[in-house]
């Protein structure tokens, strides 16, 4: 099967605790935790990976639940 990269929203966190709080808040339809992609090289070792269309909704959700993040980027990933 040929693998194809797709644009993904990747959000990094200052702490693993923040990443785990994000996971506890979201169901699988809103994304999942992935190892931080090499091109970002920031934050804790975990990042939230989601469809780009969910960006504003996820950021609002994080704001409402006081989950801080370091960086958000759209990058091409195989996941």
């Amino acid at each position: 099967m040929e693998r194809v990269k797709k644009p993904k929203l990747v959000i990094t966190f200052p702490t693993t605790t923040a990443a785990m709080a994000m996971e506890a808040l979201c169901d699988s339809a809103l994304g999942r935790l992935i190892p931080v992609p090499g091109e970002i090289r920031a934050g804790c070792g975990l990042a939230w990976c989601a469809e780009p269309a969910l960006e504003s909704m996820l950021l609002q959700l994080m704001k409402e639940n006081s989950i801080s993040f370091e960086e958000k980027r759209i990058i091409q990933l195989y996941v």
């Binding site: 605790t17 785990m20 190892p35 070792g45």
Partner: peptide
Amino acid sequence: AARGGHPAALNASRCLFQAR
């Protein structure tokens, strides 16, 4: 815990978060 995104590492990270 906090050392990777594979299932075993996440098991530990989730436990730490739940405990916190």
